[in-house]
Design a protein around this nucleic acid. Sequence first.
DNA 1: GTAATTTCTTGAACTACTTCAAGAGTATTG
DNA 2: CAATACTCTTGAAGTAGTTCAAGAAATTAC
Lengths: 188, 188
Amino acid sequence: MKSHLLTYSDFTEEEIAQVLYHFEEKRFKKKDFIIRTGQIDRYQYFISHGCVRGYIVDYNGKEHNIAFRFEEFWFGDMESFTNNTKAHYNYQALEDLTVLAISKTNWDKISNEIPAFVEYSRNLFRNAMISQQNRIAKHLMQTAEQRYEQLITEHPHVLQRISLKNIASYLGVTPEFISILRKKVAKK
Amino acid sequence: MKSHLLTYSDFTEEEIAQVLYHFEEKRFKKKDFIIRTGQIDRYQYFISHGCVRGYIVDYNGKEHNIAFRFEEFWFGDMESFTNNTKAHYNYQALEDLTVLAISKTNWDKISNEIPAFVEYSRNLFRNAMISQQNRIAKHLMQTAEQRYEQLITEHPHVLQRISLKNIASYLGVTPEFISILRKKVAKK
DNA sequence: GTAATTTCTTGAACTACTTCAAGAGTATTG
DNA sequence: CAATACTCTTGAAGTAGTTCAAGAAATTAC
């Protein structure tokens, strides 16, 4: 966490200590829910160990993965957290999970006291915004086959930890179609 | 612009004057390019009048609209602007356009001098991140027909100003298919 | 104000992807 | 370690959306 803070803004040792003081460690078991649709998300979570998926459920009850998050990444339903509204997304542990959690109260407190933290979070949001934008562009430009190939070449470690069913949902296709793609790609 | 600053953070009158001082007004004609793929985007743009589309070109030379921006909104290739790298996206005026432009140099200067500006931009990025996330979710959940219907009910003004061809590209379908959808929706 | 260009529509043939059903393989649980 | 429950695969039939070609309608340009 400390090194993560320093890569996105300049903190003094004292500021770092002050920031870290406002986090609490939490643990979850595989398959536990950290955030559920309809509830208010009062924390942001920084993963120290494990991984999670974020997903949304459509009117037919079908689940759609919008994100996977691994060690050294943040997750949370930012809209719910910011506006105290009901969360649109669910976040579920895909492995046993250890996180550093920060409450909204502490988040706001640190934001007021430590300008470097505002800059840190600005940089995080900017990067997130950029990568979401790029993801949208890829969805518009590429077929499912291209998205799958790009995923396995650019993020091969993801396949070690995430089931094909979950990958399929993230890519926006059915598990059956991922099977077909796998056969195709294997032939090349 | 002034009222926009105030809705996203607390500025003193003096700070507002200081921020505004670092913008320059620029004008473009309909169809002009403000940002082109491959060039470095050295400005961020706040629209005072007109609208633009952001798009990316795929390997087949096909264009894909990733965004439309109207009055009182920002645009720019944030990745290029931040890292001084080549822009992935093109931004083109869809109408005669007047913008307030801020250079990277001035952006960084204001960020160092005015904490409220860092908070302002953090809030912008956060909102952008949230709406991109929601857009991805909609793409995963909805058919093109549902996305089209939602667009015309939630943003009917968009249809007054944007051609169907450009809407089609934004929704991720062909213009021909938008025609089909329009007939379907008209029947209801 | 007419020519030139672009946008929108229509229809027929095609492709990427889904749905459903069923079986094999792999984890998880008591 | 047997029972249960997921995950992954296969195939056949179906659907959402594409491609291509061509014409009508609307905009732009000289």
